[in-house]
């Protein structure tokens, strides 16, 4: 339990470093949903940075994740439904966990505070209700 918290703090520190450096050096907000959805339409001027970021994301995960870790993913239908909801929701809200709960809160954005409170509360309620039904 204590080690879980230490890992979470260390991982959070790395995520904060990533978000902070991307802003300090490149002058950009590190929002995963924004960086990803920008690649789904006409590619933006800074497309190379978006692509390199995601390349790094995959490499960083592969390097640090415990080899052979088994992910408890839900059924294909659940994954598809959840994916559509997440994709639609983050675009409507203009940000996800990284953009709102890390970058937005770090700069004291009221919009991000409301968004973060909302998606965490709804996600907690969903988990509770999913066990009942």
């Amino acid at each position: 339990m204590l080690s879980d918290i230490l890992y979470a703090l260390a991982g959070g520190g790395l995520i904060g470093l990533a978000a902070g450096l991307f802003f300090l050096v490149n002058g950009r907000i590190l929002g995963i949903s924004g960086l990803a959805s920008a690649l789904l339409g006409r590619w933006p001027a800074r497309w190379l940075e978006n692509v390199l970021f995601f390349l790094g994301l995959l490499i960083g995960t592969a390097l640090v994740a415990r080899p052979g870790i088994a992910l408890a993913l839900g059924s294909p239908v659940r994954l598809a439904v959840a994916g559509i909801l997440v994709g639609f929701g983050v675009r409507a809200a203009n940000g996800c966990t990284s953009g709102h709960a890390v970058c937005g809160l770090a700069r004291g954005s009221k919009r991000s505070l409301v968004a973060t409170g909302t998606f965490i509360a709804v996600a907690m309620a969903t988990v509770a209700l999913a066990k009942v039904f």
């Binding site: 790395l14 970021f53 960083g60 390097l63």
Partner: peptide
């Protein structure tokens, strides 16, 4: 930033 973010996750 991608490497750090992935490692952090």
């Amino acid at each position: 930033a991608g490497l750090l973010f992935g490692a952090g996750l």
